[in-house]
Computed example of a mutant assay.
Amino acid sequence: MDIVASAVHEGLLDVEAGTIRPTDCWSFAQSVGAVAVAAGGDLLVAERETLTRVHPDRTRTPVARVLAPARRASRRDSLRRRVGSGHRLQRGVLRRRRHRPARRSGR
Rank of each mutant, 00 (worst) to 15 (best):
M1L: 13
D2F: 00
D2C: 02
A5P: 01
S6K: 09
S6M: 01
S6D: 06
E10H: 12
E10N: 04
L12H: 14
L12R: 12
L12S: 03
L13A: 07
D14T: 08
D14I: 09
V15L: 06
E16I: 10
T19G: 03
T19Q: 05
I20Y: 06
R21M: 14
P22R: 02
D24V: 14
D24Y: 15
C25L: 15
W26D: 12
W26K: 03
S27M: 14
S27G: 07
F28I: 00
A29C: 05
A29P: 03
A29Y: 12
Q30N: 10
Q30I: 00
Q30F: 00
S31G: 05
S31I: 07
V32I: 02
V35C: 08
A36F: 13
A36H: 07
A36Q: 12
A36L: 12
V37E: 11
V37H: 11
A38K: 07
A39N: 11
G40D: 13
G40N: 12
D42R: 06
D42K: 05
L43G: 04
L44E: 07
L44V: 06
E47C: 04
E49T: 11
R53L: 13
R53K: 05
H55V: 03
D57G: 00
T59K: 12
T59Q: 07
T59A: 12
T61W: 02
P62C: 04
P62S: 08
V63H: 03
V63T: 06
V66C: 00
V66S: 01
L67C: 09
A68H: 11
P69A: 07
A70W: 03
R71N: 09
R72H: 11
A73P: 09
R76S: 08
D77M: 04
S78H: 08
S78N: 10
S78K: 12
R80D: 05
R80L: 03
R82Y: 07
R82D: 12
V83C: 00
G84K: 00
S85P: 02
G86P: 06
H87Y: 09
H87E: 02
L89Q: 01
G92Y: 04
G92C: 03
V93M: 09
L94W: 10
L94G: 07
R97M: 10
R97I: 14
R97N: 10
R98S: 11
H99W: 15
R100V: 15
R100S: 15
R100C: 15
P101V: 08
P101A: 09
R103G: 08
R104V: 10
R104Q: 12
R107M: 13
R107V: 12
